[in-house]
Design a protein around this nucleic acid. Structure first.
Lengths: 355, 355
DNA sequence: AAGGAAAATAAAAACGTTTTTATTTTGACA
DNA sequence: TGTCAAAATAAAAACGTTTTTATTTTCCTT
């Protein structure tokens, strides 16, 4: 009677022991054969592999994990700002995760995501991951000018790849966008178009790349022999709200900007929203150049000039680098800085009205 | 000499054995005490807890995992369409992950993310997770009208919570948005505003919620006693490109729509982009009502009327439900359908020109 | 054909838990 | 004060691997 109650009991997954029974070899030999150890005879290795295939053997991750002390997890810290309620934010992270996951595909590693709300949270997450061995490697972004996570991880010899670079030491694996270059190029383009009062909508200075962008902005002016419009630099979180508010504030100053250089999509959307509600037209009253990583600027009305870098590519590189780091490769060999490509969608000279 | 080479060796993390040595109890007693088993005397339990606190004992997840057969992972399937190159897509997923992670905070569970590229990929990922015991529970979305994942998981008694519902069987834990209601409400609002030719920009029919929205759309017309503009229903992926192309196509028909009901942010952006490039003005030539989950419609120019549901809340509920499911709670008790709130930003009657 | 090194395989221990079973201690009752 | 059940603790086994150490087999050399 009771036998009818439950379905046919699922056969327990085959283990190394099952293979030992089937083939007649000891579990030690099985283990070595499966890991292609040279000490086991090729003929028995083949035999064991065949048996493994036949019964559909899959190494038990938990057993491996306990024995080796590894977790087979690649952790990613994903920032989510709790600042404004549910504001559009961090949208590019799906692309990063997608890229990392692509790199991990086919390896023994899984991707675990740790959501962090701020820098402190991020540092805590990192040390928890190290202390408790929650992962074998770590990927994170939002690098501060002097980031405690990097010190911690270097100290513990914990494999990691950062998206972005600290400003001081570079002896670790990283992937980055050339923010100095991009900010310089955008500013130079606007200067060439005749703009003099250029606003820079920038992240907070504690972020390493905010400083890089400031540098590029300044260099463009310096090279043009023009005094930088340093009073038109605004700094804040990367929210849409911030972009909008920045425009509203900046257009009230005595000598308002005729052009804007923006950080990311969401801020750009806010800037356009602010311009729209003040009745200013892009390409007529002001020009806007943005940095784009999810290919969305093409759909703004009007489409605007952007520096574009598909972020999934960065994610993939991050994953590839992390795999190599976890295998002990020298971090010095694992660095890549991407230059976004310029996509010209506007002349960015206010239709010639400036010349 | 060599002693100088490496830093002071980090003390190995304390284990249950360490605690046994310190307290003099056996490891069995330690284990039971830490899990608050009633068989161990309260006084020794306290003693053991105290010792654990003092040495900073943290249970080794790998040991627990091997012994219990659990993985302490909550898996989330994250869809990323590879359709168009790096198109803005799936941006709401950071919010979902954030919500799930919030729910998991403070528990023993970690969140692992599995990126899937299509429905087949999703089904494979699900069965891999079940077969290999990669996780103890699963969260996924993009539910098909008849989703193989649901059958698989129910069959294996594997704990899961779906975001969205199959159209046939509902005997499982799920969280959803009331798409029928939202589509109905949007359509009814436009009908009340005097619109008769209303376009529905919808996902592909294989998705369960696409059908729900079709139902709501039809019901609004039926209730108004007006023949539905069924020829103005377009179906496709949820990309910005699709939104834009839909508008361009639809405005070429003999009797073009005067209003659009959109699915999500990215499609809406595409719709607005299409309208802009054809020189049509929202609120003058056409009205647009959208569904918004990342609070971005407020920043479109002009701001448009939306049905808003903060998606992080859904994520949190998904996580909470999954925890309960993993503890064996009856799935029938774990269902929640959210109704988004209407945010009126336009009169949606073409400024009265229709009446 | 004996000896011995090299090659191949087996046995045993270990990773850190939980759980089942066994043993000791306590305390109530006669 | 001895008996016995109940309470408390200890011992041992197990989860599935990898790795170290031990044993057996092969085969070359003389």
């Amino acid at each position: 009677m009771a036998a009818h109650m439950h379905k046919t009991r699922r056969a327990p997954a085959p283990t190394i022991k099952t293979l030992a029974e089937i083939t007649g070899y000891s579990i030690a030999t099985i283990s070595k054969a499966l890991r292609e150890s040279p000490v086991v005879a090729p003929v028995t290795r083949d035999l064991i592999f065949k048996a493994a295939r036949e019964v559909g053997y899959q190494a038990n991750a938990r057993g491996m994990a306990l024995r080796t002390g590894k977790s087979f997890q690649a952790a990613v810290l994903m920032p989510v700002t709790a600042a404004r309620d549910y504001e559009w934010d961090g949208v590019e992270y799906t692309q990063i995760l997608s890229g990392v996951s692509q790199a991990l595909d086919g390896t023994d590693y899984r991707m675990s995501v740790h959501v962090i709300r701020d820098a402190v949270d991020g540092a805590e997450a990192a040390s928890r991951i190290v202390d408790q061995g929650l992962a074998d490697g770590l990927i994170f972004s939002g690098i501060l000018a002097d980031d405690p996570r990097i010190d911690l991880l270097v100290d513990h010899h914990f494999p990691f790849v950062s998206m972005g670079r600290c400003r001081k030491d570079l002896d670790y694996a990283h992937v980055d966008i050339d923010n100095e270059w991009a900010a310089h190029a955008a500013t130079a383009r606007l200067l060439a178009g005749g703009h003099r009062r250029i606003a820079l909508v920038n992240p907070e200075r504690r972020f390493s790349y905010a400083m890089d962008r400031l540098d590029g902005f300044a260099r463009a002016f310096r090279e043009a022999g023009i005094a930088a419009s340093a009073d038109l630099i605004v700094e804040g979180d990367l929210s849409t709200h911030f972009g909008r508010q920045s425009v509203i504030d900046l257009l009230q100053v005595a000598e308002p900007p005729t052009a804007f250089v923006c950080i990311n999509e969401s801020t750009t959307l806010g800037v356009l929203s602010g311009l729209g509600s003040l009745g200013r037209q892009v390409g007529v009253d002001v020009d806007v150049i943005a940095y784009d990583d999810i290919n969305v600027s093409a759909y703004f009305t009007p489409p605007i000039t952007t520096f574009y870098q598909p972020i999934e590519v960065l994610g993939r590189t991050l994953g590839q680098f992390l795999l190599k780091r976890m295998e002990g490769e020298d971090p010095k060999a694992l660095r890549q800085v991407f230059r976004p490509t310029l996509i010209e969608r506007q002349p960015d000279n206010l239709g010639g009205r400036l010349a």
